[in-house]
Design a protein around this nucleic acid. Sequence first.
DNA 1: GCCAACGTTGGC
DNA 2: GCCAACGTTGGC
Length: 150
Amino acid sequence: MAYWLMKSEPDAYSIDDLERDQMEPWDGIRNYQARNMIRDEMQVGDQAFFYHSSCKVPAIAGIMKIASAAYPDPTQFDPKAKHYDEKSTADDPRWVLVDVAFVRKMQRPVTLSELKAHPGLADFKLTQRGNRLSIFPVSEEHWKLILGLE
DNA sequence: GCCAACGTTGGC
DNA sequence: GCCAACGTTGGC
C-alpha cells in the first residue's frame, strides 16, 4: 500500500467538506506528472494526507483513502467548468481523477512550518523549494513520522 | 499583492 | 528543438 499527499485550497474544498461529503471525486488535476501518478500508480486502499494550501496556515489537515480506480475527469468536458479543456475528447480523455474517501481529521493540523523545521523531513517533497506538484507520493517513513507529530 | 519557480505554448 | 512569453502555484 502506498501513501500520498494531495493539496487543496480549503476555500475551494477543505477537510471539513470531505468529512461532510464522506466521498468526493478529486477533480481539476491538470498537470501531466500528477495525472500520470493518478493513472499509473494510485491503488484503491492507498492512503493520502489532505493538505490545505494557499491559506492562512498551510497544513496537513487530515487523512483520506483512495476509493476508486482512475477514470476520466468529467469537468474537462464541461465548458462552464473552471478546468474545462477544449482539446480533450471523450474518445481520448486527457485528464483523470480518483474518488477519495474521508478517513479522519488530524488530531490537530500539522503545519507547514513544523514540517519545515523537522530534521527528519529535510527530503520531504512538500518542504523542498520549487515544489508545485499538487499530488506526490509520501514514503512510509515520512508518513509515520508525520503521524507522530499530530 | 508580490514574486520565485516552474510548466506550457507557439513562433521560428 | 530552442527559447521567449505567458500562465499557474503557493508561500509569504
